[in-house]
Write a protein that binds this DNA or RNA. Sequence first.
DNA 1: ACGGGATATTGACATTCGTCGATATAGGCG
DNA 2: CGCCTATATCGACGAATGTCAATATCCCGT
Lengths: 116, 116
Amino acid sequence: MSTITLIPVTDVAACCAPLTRETLSPENADGLARSLKALADPTRLRLISIVAASEGKEACACDLTEPVGLSQPTVSHHLKVLVDAGFLTRTQRGTWAYFKLVPGALDAVSRLLISA
Amino acid sequence: MSTITLIPVTDVAACCAPLTRETLSPENADGLARSLKALADPTRLRLISIVAASEGKEACACDLTEPVGLSQPTVSHHLKVLVDAGFLTRTQRGTWAYFKLVPGALDAVSRLLISA
DNA sequence: ACGGGATATTGACATTCGTCGATATAGGCG
DNA sequence: CGCCTATATCGACGAATGTCAATATCCCGT
């Protein structure tokens, strides 16, 4: 399970200036790397993309397995990674699990990479 | 060596709209994931950060080993990953190798993550 | 041409990651 | 209550990753 202290991406972003402005401390580098690692998988990018394109930026897990063409456990795993990293939130509604984009989470990472 | 067709990050960025705008194709997801993977390591982030903070956004490899506290081969490896991904360029000047930030490369990735 | 310093490459190793099948859990419905 | 459907967890496996010591390569000065 590897339960390491989870650092919501919004906190990571609040921490510091864009990495091209001043040199990153080892701690900040580690936090940002963890956020980027969560994004650095084609399946997870597609999941985020599909969720973001859905009504209310929210999608049912049941609608996410088929488009990415992987097994149900694998998709569930990827969704967990994204939730743990703070990019998605999970809500149980009846039998179904809904995943919603966390507003500003992607932007927070984006802001750290920009050179302006 | 794993010589897979290298896709400069600038090309990746030119490809498509922010991933929150419309669903990412498998190919585009793969390209972006590859770029993000290159960034998703604390040491590599620090290397980029140090280079970016240097005069002319360029630094000698000889000045990069000590700050990150890893062996010379390991640093050389990380620099190669960043060059292959299109974030740095390498120039040999005499005995020394200089690494320079590719203008716009980070911004290209940044633009894909933004939700605007 | 030779020696030395800077960098890259190789080979090995432990760790992490992505994936699956099998199974567990949990909630709605008859 | 008992089944069915949706989702999560477990255990296993191969592939990829980060690291180092040892070695090779390349370039300069003598």
